[in-house]
Design a binder for these strands. Structure first.
Lengths: 213, 213
DNA sequence: ACGGATCCATCATTGGATCCAG
DNA sequence: CTGGATCCAATGATGGATCCGT
């Protein structure tokens, strides 16, 4: 899988149409509407099959694109990063064995210029992040506060304001979406699907660290 | 819903292309490949929306097409009739509250000529079946023998030979299909999906009863 | 700036059933 | 003849994320 990391670094400098071509895809008419396109193009360009079921992209490595803009030569993340969906019946487990912790154990971030026309937006220098002990402690604290709220007040009252570097937000086709799930009491019910995300400020911090090495 | 029964009776005599037109559908190139087409055309012709989730087609009425051929003027069913899929974690319930019993509580059978070119095959006289006490007892006996085998020996060893009027057979895209389900012990596992079916001989009996009234 | 809302592709499941080798 | 295998359409879930009103 280090081969994949090298391959990702080799993508640096490509424009979006060039990236799409590497992946054997053609550019969609509107990137605004095809929100997942760049992520899928990266995976295809790295030779990965469209995902077959749950689990990481590769054993032990999660791949994420990271939309970035340069402010006075410093890179800044422009969007939060999706981690995984909230499993209503797995909120009582400890951070150590939680789904978000597994997903974030080792992440290959592929920065992508976020502004401008597709042919001027380029792939940046990919880097691998493994949470430091401090990162892990911050994530654990957010996990505790978020799952605490979810268990206490249910899924309809959660807010994205909770969590300093990780938060929970809706993840659905629309606010009317309702997915079947098992709630805290074990009963089946329908609720708006939600997911864990890394905050922009945190991924911006990861970009800064990378520049300092 | 009696309106639906009347509407179904009014379909009698239509050829398959005429039925398709009533449903706002065009005939598929091959009925052999579009196995569910006639069933869907009947539902559309009756003004029913494509199904929204589990549950009966209408509250308290399940609609089934019944392919039929005439042998010396007597109608005979040419295929078994799908009832519902086998829920591996609901095999320990009594027949009284089982899924097959609910499905079969009241069925609107719409006979369809099974032989010949589409434009010569016609819709027959729809009829409603509600299990007699004797029917229900026979179904209950089959339920007991089938669930007994499934609970004792698991899903991989079940055979369609079990059951006098209701049986269990595979229901899948291929023999390689594996669906996630919860087994007898409550553990998650993958198995070939199976379903309950009414045997041909039994639906032929229902056709004969109808002719005698 | 950001919390809440939304968009697309793909895969799995479900419901409509009939096909077909032995 | 019939037990086992298979076919299609539609829906729902999941994974890829970014959009956008306040």
């Amino acid at each position: 899988m280090d081969a994949v990391i090298d391959a990702a670094r080799a993508l640096a400098g490509l424009t979006l149409p060039e990236l799409a071509e590497r992946g054997g895809l053609s550019m969609p008419p509107s990137l605004s509407r095809s929100k997942g396109f760049i992520g899928q193009a990266v995976e295809r360009a790295l030779g990965l099959e469209p995902k077959s079921g749950p689990g990481p992209d590769l054993p032990g490595l999660e791949i994420k694109t990271l939309p970035v803009e340069l402010i006075q030569k410093m890179p800044r993340s422009v969007e939060s990063t999706f981690v995984c969906t909230v499993q209503r019946d797995r909120l009582d487990v400890s951070w150590a064995v939680s789904a978000p912790r597994s997903k974030l154990a080792r992440v290959l971030f592929v920065p992508i210029e976020a502004r401008g026309a597709p042919h001027v937006r380029r792939v940046g220098a990919a880097f691998v992040w493994t949470p430091s002990d401090d990162d892990d402690a911050r994530l654990a604290a957010d996990w505790e506060s978020i799952t605490g709220q979810l268990l206490l007040h249910g899924h309809e009252r959660i807010t994205a304001r909770l969590g300093t570097i990780m938060q929970v937000r809706p993840k659905a086709a629309s606010a009317a979406s309702r997915a079947l799930s098992r709630d805290e009491t074990g009963a089946l019910s329908r609720a708006l699907p939600r997911a864990f995300y890394l905050r922009r400020a945190f991924t911006t911090e990861l970009l800064a660290r990378t520049g300092l090495r």
